[in-house]
Amino acid sequence: MWSRNAGDPVVTATEERLVTFNSGEQRLHGVLHLPQDDIRRALVFCHPFAEEKKCAHRTMVEAARGCAAAGCAVLRFDHRGCGDSAGSFGEFSLREWRMDIEAALDCAEAQTQSPVGLLGLRLGATLAAGVAESRPGVACLVLWEPIVNGARYIKQNLRRSMIKAMMTRHEGGEDSEGAASEAHALGEGTVDFDGYPVSEQMRQQMEDVDLLAGERDYTGPVLVLSLGARDEPHQALKDLANVYPRGTAIAVHQEPVWQRIGVIDADATVSTTVQWLSRLE
């Protein structure tokens, strides 16, 4: 079991290998974290969306190293239009990002020769849940604070922009009035999503997200982590876990690492995940 006390040096995997693979016509970049000893299982990490990806980046790196130190290989990768991967952010839709996850699963299976599961944070968790429904053989599903309702997620992000604008005005900076409610139309249906251009297609697909609607076909083990200050999981995440035949919801006392750059300590979240994974063996 992996655990680390605050202040201890980070445990690193013995090998971190840069990988590239194709998803359709796009070239995606990733990092494969390999355990020191035998690979017991593998996970593909699915990153969150836009600004949340940027804020959570370092945490995802630490989490991958923590999992690798516990015998679980991890493939972290950038979706098309993100990070080091090909393309521009505003060109793509969630459907294509699901294809990227499937390509990453193929890559991880080939590289590790192990059962491969999916771990996602926020919108990455939502996409992972979708892929697990349609692709046979996903070994397990770990959902860290998934976006359950896409319409609410969009509204919250627009609110965040509005609050930022309000604070900028308060501090005497320049600002466009009503920035968030106008959603910064960029033409051709593209909207400004807290600084990121989001196509009309992407926004519509996000609005359609509702993980609690309908049955879930995925029958593998599912861990839903509710990250925050509460002792109990959010009701929506409890409900989500209950939708799965083998779903478990756990609350972890965890600052929201996706909201602020510099919040990287996810020890509790990683150790809870690693413990759950170890029980699957």
Partner: peptide
């Protein structure tokens, strides 16, 4: 308290 905190307070 910054904009991230204010958002949390609203929620």
């Amino acid at each position: 308290i910054d904009s991230v905190n204010l958002f949390e307070i609203v929620v």
